[in-house]
Computed example of a mutant assay.
Amino acid sequence: MNIDRAVLMFAGLMVLLSLALGFYVSPYWYLLTAFVGLNLIQASFTGFCPAALIFKKLGCKSGVAFE
């Protein structure tokens, strides 16, 4: 799995998890959904993604968007 796919998978899992927690536990968990969305938007403009750095250190192969 390359870094691009790992970041997309992680973001999708975080959105689904935060939606479930927001529905079943507390609406404040929806803030995590907003944070993930904002992080994806800023990564599209800047090319910087903290999750990509972590996946790179874990040994994922470079992708097109994140090297």
Rank of each mutant, 00 (worst) to 15 (best):
V64M: 09
A52N: 04
C60S: 02
V15R: 01
Y28P: 01
F35A: 10
D4S: 12
Y28A: 11
M1V: 11
A6R: 04
G59H: 07
L32A: 15
I41K: 04
T46P: 05
K61A: 15
F10Y: 12
G12H: 05
A52L: 13
V36N: 00
V25Q: 10
S62Y: 05
A6P: 10
G37T: 05
S18M: 08
G63P: 10
G22A: 04
F48D: 08
L58Q: 06
A51I: 07
S62R: 09
L58F: 02
V7L: 05
P27R: 08
R5A: 12
G12W: 12
R5P: 01
V7K: 00
L16G: 08
E67K: 09
K57Y: 03
G47K: 08
R5G: 13
Y28V: 08
V36T: 02
F66N: 03
Q42P: 06
E67Q: 10
L32M: 09
F45L: 15
S18D: 02
N39R: 02
F66E: 12
K56D: 07
S44P: 01
L19F: 12
P50M: 05
Y30H: 04
A52E: 10
V15D: 00
V25N: 04
V25L: 05
P50L: 11
G12F: 11
P50W: 07
M9H: 08
F10W: 10
P50E: 00
M1K: 14
V7F: 01
L17C: 14
I54C: 03
S62A: 13
W29R: 03
L13N: 01
F55S: 08
S44K: 07
Q42M: 13
P27M: 09
R5F: 15
L21H: 08
C49K: 10
P50R: 05
L53N: 15
A34K: 06
N39A: 15
G59T: 02
A11T: 07
L32C: 15
F55D: 04
A11P: 00
C49N: 14
A51W: 01
M9I: 15
A20T: 11
M9Q: 15
A43H: 01
G12A: 11
L8M: 10
G59Q: 15
F45W: 14
Y28K: 04
A43G: 10
F66Q: 01
V64C: 05
L40Q: 12
K61I: 06
Y24N: 09
N39E: 00
K57S: 14
D4M: 05
